[in-house]
Design a protein around this nucleic acid. Structure first.
Lengths: 315, 315
DNA sequence: TTGTATGCGTTATCAA
DNA sequence: TTGATAACGCATACAA
């Protein structure tokens, strides 16, 4: 089924068929209908490879599939949303793997030479992210799910979830429950996401004139969450805001008034109150930002979404 | 960077460059080295689109990204393995979404017309699977992760995990722990996967001369798992083998001697003994079966892998 | 062992 | 408004 078959069937030239499909406004309505009917009748579909040969555009968006370390991640839901939104805009999602920035850059390089994806969707942004500078230097289209930590201004579009707003809601929730000594279990300082989530907790307590001394750093595992929770409770904490569901899972062994972050399946399973990220929307906005740029439309600089507190038990 | 640039740089014809890359044995060693050096120096990469135009092969494998219903699924780990193994064989993974067999078939149809994936990897096979017959009728290359339930013989290669062997190991484990009244919490009869998992439990008890009357069906939720567990315990069960971690999670509220299935993050988080599927290997074998067929190599009819009992506490 | 000619299906350019 | 032609980069048949 080529464009030539359609042309023959509709009694027009190949070019006219192409025009009907790509610049409908340039062809007479009657002809347009006839060509469309032929397309329908023959079940014609444009060949992506041939189109790419001619236009240099692949209609492919590449993204890395993340290794699920402890499995309590959120990426698979984002990826599903990404695939769906991309399809809605005529794009397909191509997967690659990488273990660090350098190997991911190598993947960019290889992919660009071979499949020529039109854009990249990056996740897990971090301080000193080598990937974004590599892509930016080459003026390649990309969007990140995660803001550019540590850079004063973003040279690229990004979508992120407002972690501070999330922990603020969590802290308020615990304050509303009557707690006054609320601790925070975070990650090591220097993690952009972790620091952001911590700031929402501290600013909320500070605004209420409360102490912000009940904070501890963990490596993100339930084990350290439990240890940290034990110490904070000894120091007087009656409730804990946690940087992740994984940490919250450990904290839960020590005290019941815990709020997690991410709304992973684990949280749902054990009835943990947590912060849910609007992942499908985040994915949709990523596609929007990227396809806007690819189509030369003006692009919003970035999008910041608000997480939702999922209350599964009394504070 | 085209093949012509490489040819110029290496002082040979385009054809020689193509030969070096596609039929190395046909070109003189010295020339080969010179061309390879030019490829390296120029960072040349073959254009997938142009190659596809000429050969009709896209080096793309398509697979559906599953909606995570309760999030306790296993697909994301399989997908990661698939992407990695595919890359090892020179293939990339292309994603699509679908909500049922019919919409997935529509996705096949569209994909085949546009991106022309060389093969499909299907998951979640079930009784009366419309997808496999559609693909088989058209003689399109595909492999399923999951055996063809209900069909006497497979007309296509498949990879699966031996659920019965898994529940047999689980049942043995509980028998070794001293239990004699061991129940089974399953899905509704008619689910291929569920019936298979149940059979391992019943055959093991039967082999030990024990009763197999302690079985109940659930809809797979923790809630029904809990309800089912309560009834089985009332009827005398002291331990339970469950068809999934999700069901096991509910059962765990009733009795501690529970074995789940799938080794989801939830199982790890709550210390549930469960059966782990070798997902990375399953993915690798899927790629192997599919690429064997694509290369015209003789293909193993199917591969059955054995799950591993992950013991997280005493039976 | 290497080189030449050709076509894959599409779209942009330009002419009718 | 429509049609003819060329070109994208590659790989094959065939000739040298």
């Amino acid at each position: 089924m080529t464009i030539a078959d359609v042309a023959r069937h509709a009694n027009v030239s190949r070019q006219t068929v192409s025009n009907v499909l790509n610049s409908p406004e340039v062809v007479k309505e009657e002809t347009r209908q006839r060509v469309l009917a032929a397309v329908e009748a023959l079940g014609y579909r444009v060949s992506a490879a041939a189109r790419q040969m001619r236009t240099g555009r692949s209609r492919l968006l590449a993204t890395r599939i993340e290794t699920t370390q402890d499995g309590m991640n959120v990426f698979d839901r984002f990826l599903h949303g990404l695939t769906e939104s991309a399809a809605g805009s005529g794009y397909r999602v191509l997967l690659y793997t990488a273990t660090d920035d350098q190997s991911e850059i190598a993947a960019f390089d290889q992919l660009l030479g071979e499949f020529e994806p039109d854009g990249f969707v990056l996740t897990s942004t971090h301080h000193g992210d080598a990937r974004t500078s590599w892509l930016a230097e080459r003026d390649l289209p990309f969007v990140t799910f995660g803001r550019p930590w540590g850079t004063s201004e973003a040279g690229h579009p990004w979508v992120d979830v407002d972690g501070a707003a999330g922990t603020e809601a969590a802290t308020r929730h615990l304050l509303d429950g009557g707690h006054r000594r609320i601790g925070f279990l975070g990650w090591e300082t220097g993690s952009g996401v972790g620091d952001d989530r911590k700031s929402g907790w501290s600013r909320t307590l500070a605004a209420g004139g409360l102490d912000t001394d009940l904070a501890m750093e963990t490596d993100g595992t339930p084990a350290q969450g439990q240890a940290g929770a034990r110490e904070l409770v000894e120091r007087g904490a009656t409730a804990l805001v946690c940087v992740s569901d994984s940490v919250a899972l450990g904290a839960l062994q020590v005290t019941p008034s815990v709020v997690g972050f991410d709304d992973t399946p684990v949280a749902a399973a054990i009835g943990l109150t947590t912060l849910g990220q609007p992942l499908a929307e985040a994915a949709a906005r990523c596609v929007e930002l990227l396809t806007d740029r690819l189509s030369g439309r003006p692009t919003a600089p970035h999008v910041l979404l608000t997480p939702t507190l999922v209350i599964r038990k009394d504070p």
